[in-house]
Design a protein around this nucleic acid. Sequence first.
DNA 1: ATGGTTGAAACTCAA
Length: 259
Amino acid sequence: MRIATWNINGVKARLENLLHWLKESAPDVACLQEIKSVDEAFPALEIGDLGYNVAVHGQKGFNGVALLSKRPIDDVTRGLPDGDGDEQARFISGLIPTDHGAMRVACCYMPNGNPVGSEKFPYKLDWMRRLEDWTAARLEEETPLVVAGDYNVIPEPIDAKHPENWTGDALYRPESLSAFRRLSALGLTDAVRSVAEGGNVYTFWDYQAGAWQKNNGIRIDHLMLSPEAADRLVEAGIDRHTRAWEKPSDHVPVWVELS
DNA sequence: ATGGTTGAAACTCAA
């Protein structure tokens, strides 16, 4: 089965691209971030016509995440625990029945964290700590788990065309990389890294300054697999061609094929 | 050099 993640950057502005991609890529599960929509305005009918069940955790204007699945989505959870007063819609998870038992899929939109001197940076680090706690608890259940989404973290220098340009940025600060490594150290496999160790694999190109034309990209969208999910990893990749479409998102879909 | 672009919603902010 194929599980994909895509920061869509506005689901209503991107609906035509989304439907086209769902038809050609046909993921069994798709995690969407930055839908920038309230639940009631999410285009569930159009997506449902392609055979998908939908679970949405949206908000007005910004953020917002959604799970799409050809199979039912059970036991949906919205938001991370310990979110005292946290109004930002950045997390949704669900239990998906498969031919080999249930699999939990988490769809995450980590905070960007810039500017580093503002309250946004500690919010990012705290959010990542909350995800780490949630993941540690889920791993004890030994159900296959995929923690997918826009991590807003450049894990290593080879994950940027020009890593030197990111020094001091919240996506590349030592504290952010450390939080990502702590999550990995729970026993998660970075699926794309495990099949493309050589770098030059990016998932985001800024709209500005001709970043796409210069291939000035970064790899910040990740699928992290629990041991039970990693055992089933067949293939992983990115749908780079979507960045060249009309009205593209600045991110491209990233996917894994699990047996 | 503080540019450059996009979406949502409101005439600015977040990315």
